[in-house]
Design a protein around this nucleic acid. Structure first.
Lengths: 371, 371
DNA sequence: CCGTGTCTCTAAACCGGTTTAGAAGGTGTG
DNA sequence: CACACCTTCTAAACCGGTTTAGAGACACGG
């Protein structure tokens, strides 16, 4: 069957559909002719601008409907100097994004705002540095997008100046630490970390460690600071935070380091994301520790998978989809040159599951790692 | 600091960069004037077509360089009827994609082919059905993309006819079960499943179950068939496959069903993806089973996280990035109307880790689930 | 010396919209 | 009745490229 069809219709596959008499698509001129008016008037009617009588407008719209005409995005794009597309440049290595559900939910949120607007999302991945800058330059040079989402903000982030110089609109996820011409959408993830720390302190933990994200990323740093502040506020001296790149490998390494402290080891670890919490869980179990009896852990992001581990993971939930939706709306407003301001999302909430429990009377030292 | 800057420069944030004297970007006409030739000749020189003398060409290119001119993608797009963009419509629910690293690696692979070509990826998410069809129609109506990647092929997939009717070029990931005008890039994932089954049989397992993907997805179905075939080839009667939607929740549910069989339960489970394998691992542990002593499990995809669980997961590795790169190259060739043919990727390989071991002498019944 | 062919180049049309300048006709006002 | 003004509409320019038709110069062969 398949072979027949192949041989019959496509001796050489072309990847393009068969020449199935694609009726030439109507243009604005066809509509004008049919409605008996000039192209300009069709344009006016379409964009409902004043200066078109009601009955003429109806006649034009009817003609357009009959012909099944839709204005060419490309032509419109050329004349009005808009792309009707937004860009997202993900600046992490593939591995690190891989298991991070944030972007999926964020993107889904962004797109939920597009259905109405005929917009589209251009996705690019680039490792920070020259490649990243080149990517933004490319998007701007080709005018591929009208605006971009700036995620994973870094300290003194050079993208802000770059994007601004390139003349692109933008929205930052989180508030930058330098002056920025762009509006921001942020969530107080410090509150989330604090909730986790408070929860642990209430459970009697006094030796609490933090496995942090990269300190050059603002949210990584902010969470680390929030961790320290929350611990002190609870009357507990925070243990030094271990820095990671957010990946599972690095989360595992950090956990091993913390457990190597023997009886000085933490009885609870606050991870800066779920992926590392999961990897840390495995390291602890491998070292013979029972979670949560001997060690409590908390994650961040509230990944679906964190609900399906044994034990399941207590985690801080932020609404990434909502974040995406609000960011998109804000960016579109900025592009339309409407007045916009910063947005603060709802507080993250702590989802308590099985990985946290009362602190052990005396910390059990971890066993030497098993193979 | 930040506040000062805000108040000073941007009493009302605009999301657009400051009016920093954006020098109007040069056009082909500017270049022509500077080189003392007509626009047409600049166009010829740029696209190096015959009929331009060597010295004139040099003069034109020099002028272009001096002015920093880059042809407008939009204008070119309008006249040559090409978008220089490819589309990917992900047709799964957010949750299901969330922890699936396939798309990340695939996208990274796709983009590795773009750096040279000035192409861009338009990403869309749509749940199969009306919304999905509307998405493809939208991309085609606006001529947003020159071609699309068809992933997660379904049985009798209506997208093939749709996309073909819309006049888009396409590449299918995997060979469809119906006649298709599009070239395909596929990997023999059946071989991967077979490797897993062979491995388990060699370890002495006789009661092996399969937690399958949706049967209406071709690869889900194909893996299930390969599972049954491999088991029989190894002289083992395969247990009935449990169908899922690829999500962690569903993987957990399937595992619970299998373990509820008591002493009739499988001693090994072959999962159709890693996420379900991880969820299944947790279910087994929660039921008091030791993995791999009492139960062996294998995954599919070789997720980074599967390496960092306890025990780590034996999994089938396919090269998603390579898949993306080859697909992109093929699609671009098809769009350029070069002759193309189907591509078969390298065989997937089984990565053996800790979650598989010799079959238990007598299967231990699972304990009633603990909370 | 003339017709033909080749090479280099230009003018103008074209892709399909938007936008500006202004024409034509009707109404209101002094 | 003349004038201003508003409404409705059109012609033409414009966005910034590509492509076609053909002009002009030159070499070649008969």
């Amino acid at each position: 069957m398949t072979e027949d069809a192949r041989q019959a219709g496509h001796p050489e596959q072309s990847g393009r559909a068969g020449h199935s008499g694609q009726a030439a698509r109507p243009t604005i001129t066809d509509v004008a002719r049919r409605a008996g008016v000039s192209k300009s008037l069709v344009s006016f009617a379409l964009n409902d601008r004043p200066g078109v009588s009601a009955e003429t407008r109806d006649r034009i719209l009817a003609a357009a409907r009959e012909l099944g005409w839709t204005p060419s995005l490309r032509a419109r794009s050329l004349s009005v100097d808009r792309s009707y597309a937004l860009g997202l440049v993900i600046g992490r290595s593939v591995d690190v994004i891989a298991a991070d559900p944030f972007f999926h939910a964020f993107i889904a949120g962004v797109e939920s705002e597009f259905s109405t607007a005929g917009q589209v999302l251009v996705l690019t991945r680039a490792t920070p540095g020259r490649e990243e800058a080149a990517t933004y330059r490319g998007l701007a040079a080709d005018k591929r997008v009208d605006g971009v989402f700036l995620t994973d903000l870094r300290a003194d982030d050079d993208r802000i100046r770059l994007v601004s110089e390139l003349g692109l609109a933008a929205v930052t996820l989180g508030r930058p630490d330098i002056p920025s011409p762009f509006p921001s959408v942020s969530v107080d993830d410090g509150r989330g970390i604090r909730a986790a720390v408070d929860h642990l302190i209430a459970l009697g933990h006094r030796r609490i460690a933090h496995v942090a994200g990269p300190s050059n990323m603002l949210h990584g740093r902010r969470r680390a600071e929030a961790f320290a502040a929350a611990a002190r506020a609870g009357g507990v001296e925070p243990m030094a935070a271990v820095e990671t790149d957010f990946s599972a490998v690095d989360g595992a390494r950090a956990t091993r380091e913390l457990l190597a402290l023997g009886t000085e080891r933490p009885t609870a670890i606050v991870y800066s994301n779920d992926m590392m919490a999961l990897a840390g869980l495995a390291v602890a179990q491998r070292a013979g520790l029972r979670v949560p009896l001997d060690l409590s852990i908390t994650g961040f992001d509230n990944t679906e998978l964190g609900e399906h581990t044994f034990p399941s993971i207590t985690s801080v939930a932020t609404d990434a989809a909502e974040w995406g939706a609000r960011s998109a709306r804000l960016l579109l407003a900025a592009i339309a040159e409407e007045p916009v301001g910063d947005i603060e999302l709802a507080e993250p909430r702590l989802v308590i599951r099985e990985s946290t429990a009362a602190a052990p009377a005396a910390p059990v030292a971890a066993a030497p790692p098993r193979t």
